[in-house]
Design a protein around this nucleic acid. Sequence first.
DNA 1: ATTAAATTTGTAATCGATTACAAGTTATGA
DNA 2: TCATAACTTGTAATCGATTACAAATTTAAT
Lengths: 329, 329
Amino acid sequence: MANIQQVAQKAGVSVATVSRVMNNSSSVTASTRQKVENAIKELNYEPSVLGRNLRTSESRLILVLIPSISNPFYTEIINGIEDTSIKNGYNILLCETDSSVERENIYLNMIKNKLVDGAISMDPAVNMEKLNQLALDYPIIQCSEYEEGGIIPYVTINNELAAYQAVKHLIKLGHERIALVNSDEKFLYARQRRQGYDRALKEYHLPIREELIYHTDYLEFDYGIQAMRKLLEVQEKPTAVFAVSDTLAIGALKEINQSGLQVPNDIAVVGFDKISFSNMTNPSLTTISQPMYKMGCTAATMLINSVVGKKVENIVLDHELVIRDSTMG
Amino acid sequence: MANIQQVAQKAGVSVATVSRVMNNSSSVTASTRQKVENAIKELNYEPSVLGRNLRTSESRLILVLIPSISNPFYTEIINGIEDTSIKNGYNILLCETDSSVERENIYLNMIKNKLVDGAISMDPAVNMEKLNQLALDYPIIQCSEYEEGGIIPYVTINNELAAYQAVKHLIKLGHERIALVNSDEKFLYARQRRQGYDRALKEYHLPIREELIYHTDYLEFDYGIQAMRKLLEVQEKPTAVFAVSDTLAIGALKEINQSGLQVPNDIAVVGFDKISFSNMTNPSLTTISQPMYKMGCTAATMLINSVVGKKVENIVLDHELVIRDSTMG
DNA sequence: ATTAAATTTGTAATCGATTACAAGTTATGA
DNA sequence: TCATAACTTGTAATCGATTACAAATTTAAT
């Protein structure tokens, strides 16, 4: 690969002029510009991003941290982030942390090293201490999961309200024994969805039965199966299940079918996220639709604003209850 | 962020010595090493990857190109790539091309710009001309999809054999009208799987009926539904369907259920890939299991070998037919 | 004690760009 | 025509590391 001096030499100009042509910054005569452009073409020159970034200390690269690429919830968000970033001349660097502090550190250090201009974190298990510390010096946005009262700007939905509406929908259908398949309540979204569940039950004077509340360690299908298996062992079985993710809900669906019961007649199921697969199950899944693409776009916009020095505000987006066959056959 | 000269000054040594401590290359006395390490700790110094890479022209970053993050097929491969990379001191940069030449170029240019040390491509729609040209100068590996007789090393499975076995399985169960839901045969894997399908039918003296072969433009669920809808309109309906991806097969399953027919009694279904969802459908999906994790590991190993200058050979990994409920109720 | 060999440390060039400032060139107006 | 303003171009410093090579120091051998 040719470098800028070779181009300058071939064009018979200085490196400064070549740089000016590349960035069409200050004025260059048409004739010299032509000479330089010819040299560039002849040598097939492309500027070294490394050299440039070292000098300008910007990379036009955005770090996106996700816990796991296998969770379909993130895919739409990422599409939003990517589209918005590219539109603004940034590229994204997608990094899977597996919720491992070690990996997370490797990636977060990129921001200190000027390898990226900022980061969007979507990992609920992120090391908030480290993130807050970094956020003092560098642009960081939290997407979907966040810290209440923290210093890092975030985009999210109203989890409490969404859960409330999901459960209320079940209650309106006549259900009284409604199970909750939640994840670990160390996560804020889990606590918020739990609050919504509680509020709906209280509002309709239904008791909160601990035996109908199950916590899983992970959001994968298998854990949904596990959860449902336990819930079906309860003396008075639930007639409806609200799971805090579609993956869990689909696992539950599978286990209910397996046990010979019918959805929604014997047990109704509601999920959360509206992942694309939620429409492929049999029956199709009632779920809360998060505006995932828009969330991604918003997060990216916020981050880029933050990178260029603008002040950004927290944003709460609207969600929607999507009623399908798993609650109304 | 402190830089190396500040550390040198604080420790009362030269920058060269600091660099030596950082890379524990040549010998440094215990006492000076101590001084430097103290200074590093005090200033909270972390070396600039940009400066280092510019000098050494290596980044210890690997580019991974996938067409779409929403296809679950890639997730396990990526896990394999990531684990192997990290074990060898490399990090990965995951990039979604959406099979867009423009985006692809942006990312592929990173390799010329020394932002990454090499690339693993998994995009069947990749611009082979550009990729081949790059491969002359830089380490590149193709994973899963590849070019026959090309110059780029690849890791894959025997697609023809896998398809042959899948169809043979259906034939052995007594099926004679077996539909094929294929993707565009401009892709090598599609042509190979088609060959396997043809071979199995021929071997058992069954006719190849064009009306039972459907090509889709994309691999998403919706296209499986579309395909099945068409196939159900055929005069003599198929009694079995072989789809070249699980996502398509799951779409087909959904459409069969929707139309009131039973899987596998009315129509049997076989997929390809063994994505994690394939076990969540009702009934669970018979499918070809690709060793995705291992494929990822292999691709990463090959690339790293290539980066350090070793010669690498093409590798064909073993697959497996996983028989589940969608073919044998 | 003296010299040679081995080890440790420092100086300065280098990677490939950008950019302030200086210098050179052209255009403008009296 | 000449002074001045406006515009082009070039020189050289800079970003933050690594690393030959040189210099200084320590160790070993006589």
